[in-house]
């Protein structure tokens, strides 16, 4: 019990001020490493402030001092009990070429599920078009896909002038923004125990399957491959990876076969989620550029074989990157905390 409050505050104030100075230094300079003596002193000051808080909590007349001490103890507590590394340097190159593919591989099971859901959607979409060609209007959200594929191919191959002249950059930006937005949504909908992510992936698969079969039935397989492969070889896997991130979040929420608490499970996946979605965003920037500047050009100006070869090359490089890059490096941190 405190008998003389004024004296108590007068004596302890110097220690509180010293702790506050230490905290300000640590908060201002994240890279600062305390030596052993500094660490010991910091820990001593923290324990002293915590003890003062416990003592003053019984003294009703000092709510302001109590609030001040609570704030000091809370700040010191976060510095002392935090065990995760706090990244304070940007390492974008090693993050993209090592952390991102390592994270992708660590969560490969979720990618497989994401791929499987999309494949089921593709089969459903293709099946719907095969059994009921009239369903095209319902399944396809874009008006330019609802017409006859052969007529579109004929129209676009006959075009002599560059119909996108002066709009390439705007179109690329629009594609990037839209695709990144959808990808973030695929991640975010993981919070619905994955149901939202599954619906989004399945619906994407339906559109893809319906469009593909529609063009194949019209005998336009080469056009389809030449149109979709250059950007789709990056864009489709990127959306699958976004779905993978959503399913990782959902798995952390559900927690089947995981003894950790919900809070610990969410904490364990948070770094991986951010790494995956930032990687997806970069892939989609590339896909947007390719779709605007290459995919929209067809014969005679652009050889289909060249476009298909380019798409295949991209796909091969992407999967080599995702499955091989950074394999010889040790992953950073247990939770893969990214250093963007």
């Amino acid at each position: 019990m405190i008998l003389d409050l004024d004296r108590f505050i007068r004596e302890e104030n110097a220690f509180w001020k010293e702790l506050e100075d230490c905290l300000e230094l640590l908060e201002r300079r994240a890279e600062h490493q305390m030596d052993l003596a500094e660490s010991r002193r910091f820990y001593y000051l923290y324990r002293r402030a915590a003890s003062d808080l416990a003592r003053i909590s019984t003294f009703a007349a000092e709510p302001a001092i109590r609030g001040y001490l609570e704030s000091l103890v809370a700040r010191a507590y976060s510095e002392i009990h935090e065990t995760r590394d706090k990244p304070y340097r940007l390492r974008p190159v090693s993050w993209f070429f090592e952390t991102f593919p390592q994270t992708f591989r660590r969560r490969a099971r979720a990618f497989q599920v994401s791929l499987a859901i999309t494949l089921v959607g593709i089969l459903f979409g293709a099946g719907a078009i095969a059994l009921d060609p009239q369903s095209k209007e319902t399944l396809m959200p874009f008006s330019h896909l609802q017409g006859d594929p052969s007529k579109r191919v004929e129209r676009e191959e006959k075009q002599e002038r560059d119909f996108m002249k002066g709009e390439h950059s705007t179109f690329a930006a629009m594609l990037m923004v839209n695709n990144i937005r959808v990808s973030i949504l695929a991640l975010g909908l993981g919070i619905t125990w994955g149901l939202g992510t599954i619906v989004l992936l399945f619906y994407n698969g339906i559109i893809l399957g319906a469009v593909a079969l529609d063009y194949i039935r019209a005998g336009q397989s080469v056009f389809l491959a030449g149109w979709l492969l250059p950007h789709g070889s990056i864009e489709i896997p990127a959306v699958l990876i976004a779905g993978q991130a959503g399913l990782v979040l959902a798995n952390a929420l559900v927690g089947w076969g995981n003894a950790l608490s919900l809070r610990e499970r969410l904490r364990a996946v948070s770094g991986d989620l951010v790494t995956l979605i930032f990687g997806v965003a970069l892939l989609l920037v590339w896909a947007g550029i390719v779709e605007s500047f290459l995919s929209q050009y067809h014969k005679p100006g652009m050889l289909y074989a060249l476009k298909i070869a380019f798409g295949c090359l991209e796909l091969t490089l992407l999967f080599a990157f995702l499955f091989r890059a950074g394999a010889h490096k040790t992953p950073r941190g247990p939770a893969g905390e990214p250093t963007p």
Partner: peptide, 23 residues
């Protein structure tokens, strides 16, 4: 914004809470 357990706020936490604004 602060960590629910009073620990240091990590970059991934800040990113996730802001990305989930879409939902």
């Amino acid at each position: 914004v602060m960590d629910v357990q009073g620990l240091q706020l990590q970059f991934s936490q800040v990113a996730i809470r802001n990305l989930l604004r879409f939902v």
